[in-house]
Every structure is written in structure tokens, then in C-alpha cells.
Amino acid sequence: MSNEKFNYLLRLGDSTLILSQRLSEWCGKGPALEEDMALANTALDLLGQARQWLSYAGETDGMGQDEDDLAYLRNADQFANFLLVERPNGSYADTMVRQFFFDAWYHLALQKLVLSKDERIAAIAGKAAKEVRYHLRRSSDLIVRLGDGTPTSRSMIQSAVDELWPFTGEMFEADAIDLAVAEAKIGFDPSSLRSDWLSYVHSVLDEATIKMPNAEAWMQRGGKQGRHTEALSYLLAEMQSLKRAHPGAAW
């Protein structure tokens, strides 16, 4: 079980870590000062959560790896984040749609994780849920504003939705690890979130006058199993360069 739990915690930690890294790239480049602050806040929330998930993962593993080892010394094929969160920032519309899809999933996921039999997981989820409730409120609000905004902003949101849609299916696909932690009641079966996610996303896209892609469309997969898009290696090369150049240094 400890191996499944380790991998499961890595998935949570990696998705929050990689998305945080992506959002940090926006620092100083947001469309308005207020948006800049909001993205940085979200990035910091997610980084805080990543630290908790990864620290716990390291303890579970018993190999003495801490959060820094896990963040900085693994290669792309050892990362277990969703493909969605590693996608490049693109335009603000692309960034907000990616955020919205993930927030909607993570919000539902945390509702399940607070009920985890593992007290530590339940505690981390309880703290994260408060932050993510706000992330979701904000990203939903912006999807509606931009979708139902000018013709330009509308078409940018629509194409971001179409482009990122194939990366959403993976969030609801259960594999052996998901099923093992669900069985042990420390995690949950991700397929159980799918209908709630679809109906929430549908309601927001509807309000935003955006056409929802076909829920049964073909979906990308592989992130959770370490098979990533080409985007992740570049992200890691930047994120890990200092630690790799000076292994063992303290800061």
C-alpha cells in the first residue's frame, strides 16, 4: 500500500507544483496589476499545497526524500502530474481556461479527500479546500466575463476550451493506483467526479456563451503514468537548473 500511497501523493503534489510553476511565469506580465496579484496568490497557494503533498509523499516512501529532492531531482518521466497543468500559458484566455478546468476538478477532489481515512491527507485537503474554493470562484468568474465579453475575448476563450479539452479526460480515468487507494479509503475513484465536473463546467460555459466540446471526445492520457507532452521537460529544465548545478547546496 505504501507504494501506491506514495505515487498517489506524488500525483497531487506534482499537479499543484507544475501548475504553480506555470502561473509563476505570469509574474509581472498579467493584463492588470490586480490580475497579476491574483495569479501570484494562486501560484503561492498551489505551491504551499504541493509542498505538503510532496513532504508527505517523501515521508511515506521511507527513502528519506524531502520535498526539494522530489521537486528538483526527478526527471520528466518520474513526474505524475496531469498533462493539463503542464500545457504552456499561451494567452490569458488559455491560462484561465486551464485554471478553470483544473480548479473545477481539484475542488471536487478535495471534497472527497477531506473524508480520507488517512488523517494527514484529510488535513491537507481541508486546508487546501478553502483556497481552491476561491480559485474556482475566480476562474469561473473570469471565464464568464471573457466568454461573454467582446467578440475577440469570446473567440479566444472558445479556442482555448477546444484546445485544452482533450487534456481533461485524464483527470477522471482510474488506474490501478487510484483503485488501490480508493479501496483503502484513503483516496477516491476519479471516475466518480466526472458527472459533477461536466455539469459544473457546462453551467459556467453556458453562462459564458461558450460551446462545450463533446464530452465523449477522444482524450489524451499518460501524465499520471509519467508519459508527458514535450512541454514538461522544458519547464523542468528551467525549474531545476540551479539545484542540478549545485546538488546538495542549502538555501
Binding site: A32, L33, E34, M37, A38, N41, E131, Y134, R137, R138, D141, R145
Partner: peptide, 21 residues
């Protein structure tokens, strides 16, 4: 003070800029 398109957005932005939750 801050810039926002409407009151809802101003509340959201105030949360990010001034309250640090």
C-alpha cells in the same frame, strides 16, 4: 484603492491585493 470592472470583481481583487486571506 484598486481597479476593477464591477463590484464583484473589486471584492475579488481586494481579497488578493489587500487581505492576504
Amino acid at each position: 484603492s484598486l481597479h476593477a470592472a464591477d463590484a464583484d470583481m473589486a471584492i475579488n481583487n481586494a481579497r488578493d491585493v489587500y487581505t492576504r486571506r
